[in-house]
Design a protein around this nucleic acid. Structure first.
Lengths: 186, 186
DNA sequence: AGGGGCATGTAACTAGTTACATGATTAG
DNA sequence: CTAATCATGTAACTAGTTACATGCCCCT
């Protein structure tokens, strides 16, 4: 699965511009896929040359012209051959988890700062997914519903564990430093 | 967070060869990070030039020589500067979820084949994480324990949702095709 | 005889990012 | 007057992959 497959998928749903595609990636797929303009525009040019899509320049009032791309029969065949290709494994790259793995080389304060930050981000992420599900759930296909349910459940489970972990680390810290109080009592 | 940071992290724990590093990535970090030999060996050469690590050639009986790398003070400082850098967002790329998102363009059988495959893979993944936790849990640092707990909980939650989703899709199919039974009754 | 593990490395390639460049309109 | 939104695109770069090349040992 490459950026091209995901772009073709969006163009299967409706014709749109590179700018629209970027927005859809962010709004709809950001939890499990993303691509930058630097990927989208060159990929669209390449696909147009290969006749997987066609370009139509649309004039707009008050806004710049946009190039609206439409998938061709060849493009649709290409997308179906992607759907029939072998399923690729999920790839997760988590800076947070790498840091936690090497936590023995950081002091407790630094570790806690990562955890607090991870909690803030995960909460924002979860709130967004829940809002999307509430709003658009009724328009989603059954398989899209499964996607968002996976996202929500995963975020909730991560959040719970990081929060519990943070509480435990704070406790341990207090237990290991009873001297702090004595110093302050002086 | 790049491959270099993760390699430095492993070399903080102990000196080892490129081959060892690859094994550790697979055994210990594969859920949230991976790098191939094609990344590891060039990165080690580059880091040696930059004096972040030193190389020592070790002769072995019955096995090829190995280049064992040791982190330098400069390397340790570099690793600590990574730990103090800004936390990067998690990046997930899920072919399974992309396909599910575009499920409207695939027939029910194809969708079910993805889901079955996803379940098999997730179950294998979960079994491995659980086994690792049982075996090595007592030797893990508190932050490493959080990593594996996140992995286990996430896998369990994904599994539950995909299994429920698959059951639902099978139900819907039967409801939509009562004719099948009639044909078989002939 | 063949496969798997140990061990290192390179070359060709793919994919992707970030930053820059441009420029109009609209909202605060 | 400033920032955001709309809109497209390129260039330089970074990071990474896959496949190939080599070769010995051990087990079956």
């Amino acid at each position: 699965m490459t950026g091209q497959d995901a772009i073709l998928g969006l163009l299967m749903r409706k014709s749109m511009s590179g700018y629209d595609i970027k927005q859809q990636f962010e709004e709809l797929l950001s939890y499990f896929f993303d691509a930058s303009f630097g990927t989208i525009y060159p990929t669209l040019s390449k696909m147009e040359k290969e006749e997987l899509i066609t370009k139509e320049s649309i004039e707009q009032q008050g806004k710049p012209n946009k190039n609206v791309y439409t998938i061709t029969e060849k493009g649709k065949a290409q997308f179906h051959s992607y759907l029939e290709s072998k399923l690729q494994d999920n790839v997760l790259r988590s800076d947070f988890m790498v840091r936690m793995f090497f936590g023995q080389f950081a002091d407790s304060e630094l570790i806690q700062s990562w955890m607090k930050e991870a909690i803030v981000r995960e909460e924002a992420h979860l709130a967004r997914l829940k809002k999307d599900y509430e709003r658009f759930g009724k328009y989603m296909t059954p398989t899209q519903e499964i996607c968002i349910q996976i996202g929500i459940a995963s975020a909730e489970s991560n959040l719970k564990i990081v929060k519990e972990g943070l509480a435990k680390i704070r406790q341990t810290e207090q237990g290991e430093r009873p001297a702090t109080n004595q110093i302050e009592e002086e």
